[in-house]
């Protein structure tokens, strides 16, 4: 334990409104804490800069999964375990269910939240690739009201987000319009469980006969933030997966990925490895479309 806990404050206002009021009154002073699976690690190693924390862990207003005709709305305080146990998500958003299942361990899934995973804004985070591919939107709330932005516009840079100091992430909304799409997700981590991604790719494709009518790809650890790979999508849209064309399509996809990916060398892997393995995962997906 490398922090002196007596130097930290933590309060738990009873309602969401009270939390928002406090954030608005002293913008930037308080850091929200939900499941604590990131911030408590920072505390343990002596690197938690924020001295005043505001608990949102207990706010029932943030912990829900609501399904309507077009979308599934997930409260930011929903845990990975909640997501794994939800039948609607398992059916409609299998990529999100998979990514929740391999986030940390069971104990961490019981505490960690979807909102926390997004706001912590690690480029290696597990759920963003699926959410990016699904075209999620995020609803941000403050005392001034709410605003909804496409999730693709949320991550601005390394650990930088569109969240203002007085705002909280409230809801993640994911369209349920992927019936009939080919869906594929794969994480390459340091081991089979309790692992941080070296890279991960979430892929969705809609075929029109043997033509890729639409394709959406989200990636982890290929850039300074979770990445929606619009370049690869543009390169592949309209291409054919017919036997005679497949190799050219695969080449086009790999080339586009090599161009778009800007992975780094770090303690877990190398940029070269990440690039090529992500390309292999993309190729694996493209070839699977033929089957």
């Amino acid at each position: 334990m490398r922090s002196d806990v007596t130097q930290y404050e933590l309060t738990a206002p009873t309602t969401l409104a009270a939390v928002l009021a406090q954030l608005a009154a002293e913008p930037g002073k308080h850091t929200p804490i939900a499941g604590g699976t990131e911030l408590m690690v920072a505390l343990g190693v002596g690197r938690l800069a924020a001295k005043s924390l505001l608990s949102i862990n207990h706010l029932k207003e943030l912990r829900f999964i609501r399904v309507d005709d077009d979308a599934i709305h997930i409260g930011a305080g929903t845990t990975f375990t909640d997501i794994r146990r939800n039948a609607d998500i398992a059916r409609d958003l299998p990529l999100l269910a998979s990514s929740a299942s391999w986030t940390g361990s069971v104990a961490n899934q019981n505490r960690g939240t979807l909102g926390g995973n997004i706001c912590n804004a690690s480029p290696a985070a597990d759920t963003p690739p699926a959410l990016l591919a699904y075209g999620a939107t995020v609803t941000l709330i403050s005392t001034n009201g709410t605003r909804t932005v496409p999730y693709t516009e949320f991550h601005l840079g390394y650990k930088r987000t569109a969240l203002r100091p007085d705002e909280l992430l409230h809801t993640i909304t994911v369209p349920r319009t992927f019936a009939g799409w080919k869906q594929h997700i794969r994480k390459v981590g340091t081991r089979n469980a309790q692992a941080i991604s070296k890279t991960a790719l979430a892929c969705l494709a809609k075929l029109d006969g043997e033509t890729i009518a639409e394709i959406r790809i989200g990636a982890a650890s290929l850039a300074d933030r979770p990445l929606r790979c619009t370049g690869i999508e543009a390169a592949l849209t309209g291409l054919s997966i017919a036997k005679a064309d497949l190799e050219a399509t695969v080449r086009a996809g790999r080339a586009a990925l090599a161009f778009e990916a800007k992975p780094i060398d770090d303690i877990r892997s190398t940029g070269r490895y990440r690039s090529i393995v992500a390309a292999n995962l993309l190729e694996e997906f493209l070839r699977s479309l033929v089957l």
Partner: peptide
């Protein structure tokens, strides 16, 4: 450090006392 909190498994090193 795993314990059961309200029946759910948690790592107690990551749970602040107030929670």
């Amino acid at each position: 450090c795993a314990v059961l909190m309200n029946g759910e498994l948690v790592n107690s090193c990551l749970v602040p006392a107030l929670h």
